[in-house]
Simulated scan of single mutants.
Amino acid sequence: MSETHLPGGFVNTVVRVGDTVRRMPGQRAAYVHELLRHFERRGWAGAPRFLGLDEQGREILSFMDGHVAWADAQPDGVASDESLARAAELVRECHDLTAGTPLAGEEEVVCHNDLSPKNTVYRGERLRPVAFIDWDLAGPGRRIHDVAHVCWQYAGLGPAVEDPAGAARRVRLICDAYGLQERGEVVEAVLWWQDRCRRGIEADAAAGMPHAIRLRAGGVVAQVRACHEWVAEHRAEFERALR
Rank of each mutant, 00 (worst) to 15 (best):
R143S: 14
R198C: 04
V190N: 03
R126G: 08
L180D: 00
Q181G: 12
V161E: 12
Q181T: 15
R123D: 07
T98W: 05
G105V: 04
L157T: 14
C197G: 09
I174R: 01
R196I: 01
Q181Y: 12
H112T: 00
D146R: 06
L84I: 04
I133D: 02
A177I: 09
V147A: 00
C111S: 06
A99P: 09
G77D: 10
P117W: 01
V78G: 10
G100Y: 10
A189E: 14
R86G: 07
S116D: 03
G179K: 01
V110G: 01
L157N: 12
E82N: 03
H145I: 13
S80L: 01
L191W: 04
A79D: 08
E89M: 13
L191S: 01
W192I: 07
R128L: 15
S80Q: 08
G200A: 02
S83T: 05
V109L: 09
L180N: 00
I144W: 10
D81C: 11
G156S: 05
V147M: 05
V91C: 01
R128A: 09
A99Y: 04
Q194D: 04
W152G: 11
R183Q: 09
P102D: 06
A87K: 12
D195L: 07
E89Q: 00
Y178C: 04
E82Q: 14
V150P: 06
R143M: 12
A189G: 03
P75L: 00
R196A: 12
E188Q: 15
R199I: 08
P117S: 02
T120V: 11
R92N: 09
W135N: 04
L90Q: 00
P140H: 10
V110H: 05
V110Y: 08
G200N: 09
E162Y: 01
D96K: 07
A155W: 05
E107M: 10
D195T: 14
A138E: 02
F132Q: 07
V190P: 12
D136W: 05
N119M: 08
V150Q: 04
A155K: 07
A131N: 01
L97K: 14
Q181S: 13
V78P: 14
C94K: 11
V171T: 07
H95F: 10
D96E: 06
P164D: 14
